[in-house]
């Protein structure tokens, strides 16, 4: 039937159109390197050791400017920490609570149920302290960019000397992968900056890989559950569909 051919081409067009759109959109800029990630693909999972290293990089480097307001310490369970470890990590922070019975705000050690404290009181303070460009919240940064993991990796590793004809204002930096190349954030990572507890190399490349993994997890903490549930749901539906196909054939047998 011709209808079938039309249906196929329609489906193909529907799938290809957004992809083509995405390619065209980023044509002016240098696309970030296409990396292979531990979490990509149907069976991809998070590498817990990388998550923990990435969290360390976030805490020691990114967190001085970037908030992660969707995250609570209790979420660190997903990194493989147990309850007492999470309590200890949370207690390293001081959070504001209150008001108490006298109506005053007070400070206390963090608890697992607390959110990650933000480096600035609000967006205006963040912008003021950073030449007018507020550092974005990182909870969803990977989901909020096209090709998020590659994009973040590209930004973190893409700092270069500006070309001779570039006119950078004070407080601006040159990044190969930033759309437009000009970025307010100064090069955040350098070799040896964060001391890893395991054998992983203390290099910018490794830091960037780990922090990307951590940020991907932060934006999509249920990815592994999602994929596992999906496998079960699809298996069930396929078997059910097979049975229904047999039922349908049986019933229609007398008509054909």
């Amino acid at each position: 039937m011709t209808m079938k051919r039309f249906a196929l081409s329609l489906a193909a067009a529907a799938v290809l159109a957004p992809a083509a759109a995405a390619i065209a959109k980023e044509a002016h800029d240098v696309p970030p390197p296409h990396m292979h990630w531990h979490f990509s693909g149907m069976f991809g999972t998070y590498d817990k050791a990388a998550l923990q290293r990435g969290y360390k990089v976030y805490r020691e480097v990114c967190a001085s400017c970037h908030s992660m307001k969707q995250m609570s310490f209790r979420n660190l369970e997903g990194l493989g920490y147990d309850e007492s470890q999470i309590k200890a990590i949370a207690a390293e922070y001081t959070v504001e609570d209150g008001p108490n019975d006298e109506g005053d705000m007070f400070e206390r050690p963090g608890r697992p149920s607390d959110r990650f404290p933000a480096p600035f009181a609000n967006a205006k303070a963040a912008a003021f302290a950073n030449n007018g460009a507020a550092p974005p919240d990182l909870s969803l940064i990977v989901k909020a960019r096209h090709h998020g993991p590659d994009y973040v990796y590209g930004i973190l590793t893409g700092y270069e000397e500006p070309p001779a004809d570039a006119h950078l204002q004070p407080g601006q930096n040159w990044n190969k992968y930033m759309p437009g190349h000009v970025i307010a954030m100064a090069k955040p990572l350098s070799d040896g900056q964060v001391a890893y507890e395991d054998e992983s190399p203390a290099t910018v490349d490794q830091y960037a890989r780990d922090v990307v993994q951590f940020l991907t997890w932060a934006g999509d903490p249920y990815m592994e559950t999602r994929k596992r549930t999906g496998a079960k749901a699809i298996m069930f539906l396929l078997v059910f569909a097979g049975i229904m196909y047999a039922v349908k054939r049986k019933i229609w047998a007398s008509v054909h």
């Binding site: 149907m42 999602r226 994929k227 549930t229 999906g230 496998a231 749901a233 699809i234 539906l237 396929l238 059910f240 569909a241 229904m244």
Partner: peptide
Amino acid sequence: LLVYLVIFCAFVFY
């Protein structure tokens, strides 16, 4: 419908 749901689930879960 079940065949359609398989495709739907591919998007929902993956």
